[in-house]
């Protein structure tokens, strides 16, 4: 594919997904608060907020690591883009159907950890730094379950390519064949985008965590990049666990979009309904419960795939 077109497709998917995520989030917030949902307002609000952020003056701290600070959102966005590129958006159409797509996703999501830590560290300020450390503890806990459930999903397909994994779900989707996969993946995915109950890195209890000292256009870039990561996670989840383009009547691309939106809506609902989890408790749960469950998932899927 032409490189310009490829960047356009990836950017379009990420941008549309992030906007849809913001709209869903606004609607859910109004629902939780008992405010009337006027859809015209709900749809326009993210654009208004983004414009406000873009026009706000940028603040700075004493002697930040300016390059690393600017690099962090770019790193997140680039890694989300790399993940999106390897996912087939419709039957036979992926921006780059890499033969090792699952490994590419894992590598990209590992670099996200670097981006978040850099964002917290480079501000040269205590709260962001604590947020960065929190994210490392979180990331080291969710990374093993994430890798294991993806490996389990690759087993029936006998391939590491996302396209082959989607193709292998023609009969029944992985969410049915591997009931442990999607819940574990969603927990790890919420950790990846530090979203909902796992938003310790940027949580309100840390005055905004790694983003505490960021305002103006840089804040906009960061919030966008973080949503891009969640969109990439949802897209990959839709492809790997919800059967991707498979579905009756409607064309494959529409199914893909619907499934991604469903996962985003589920994430948003969890984010508004479940309280923030204390990190030290999550670490214990991740190592003592999630990793064994993910191993069970791998073993059962492997036995079934034989």
């Amino acid at each position: 594919m032409n490189p310009v077109a490829a960047v356009g497709v990836v950017g379009g998917v990420l941008g549309a997904g992030a906007y849809a995520l913001a709209v869903l989030d606004g609607a859910a917030a109004r629902g939780v608060a008992g405010m009337p949902r006027r859809w015209a307002d709900v749809v326009v609000e993210p654009a208004r907020d983004a414009a406000l952020l873009a026009l706000t003056r940028r603040s700075t701290t004493e002697r930040p690591d300016a390059q690393a600070w600017a690099l962090a959102p770019g790193l997140l966005a680039a890694m989300a883009g790399a993940a999106v590129a390897s996912v087939p958006l419709a039957e036979g159409f992926a921006v780059a159907d890499v033969a090792d797509g699952i490994v590419l996703f894992g590598a990209a999501m590992a670099v996200v950890m670097v981006g978040v830590y850099l964002h917290g560290w480079s501000a040269n300020s205590p709260f962001p730094l604590v947020g960065g450390y929190r994210f490392i503890a979180l990331a080291l806990s969710y990374e093993m379950p994430l890798a294991l459930v993806l490996i389990a999903a690759a087993l029936p397909a006998e391939s590491l390519s996302v396209g082959a994994i989607v193709a292998s779900q023609a009969g029944s989707w992985n969410v049915v064949r591997q009931p442990l996969g999607l819940p574990l993946y969603l927990v790890a995915g919420m950790g990846l985008a530090f979203w909902g109950p796992l938003d310790g890195a940027d949580g309100a209890d840390l005055a905004g965590g790694t983003a505490a000292e960021v305002s103006g256009p840089a804040r906009l870039a960061w919030e966008l990049a973080r949503r891009f990561v969640l969109v990439a996670v949802a897209l990959m989840g839709a492809a790997v666990f919800l059967g991707g383009w498979h579905g009756p009547v409607l064309p494959g691309a529409v199914w893909m979009a619907l499934k991604t939106l469903a996962l985003l809506a589920l994430t948003v609902a969890i984010g508004h309904r479940v309280a923030r989890v204390r990190l030290e408790r999550f670490v214990v749960v991740a190592w003592a419960v999630l990793i064994p469950l993910a191993l069970v998932d791998v073993f059962v899927s492997g036995a079934l795939a034989l």
Partner: peptide
């Protein structure tokens, strides 16, 4: 490809721990 991607996967975590 696999080795290159696994190298990135491994080192991103390891370098963060190193930092």
């Amino acid at each position: 490809r696999f080795l290159g991607l696994v190298l990135v996967l491994m080192m991103a975590g390891e370098m963060t721990i190193m930092a």
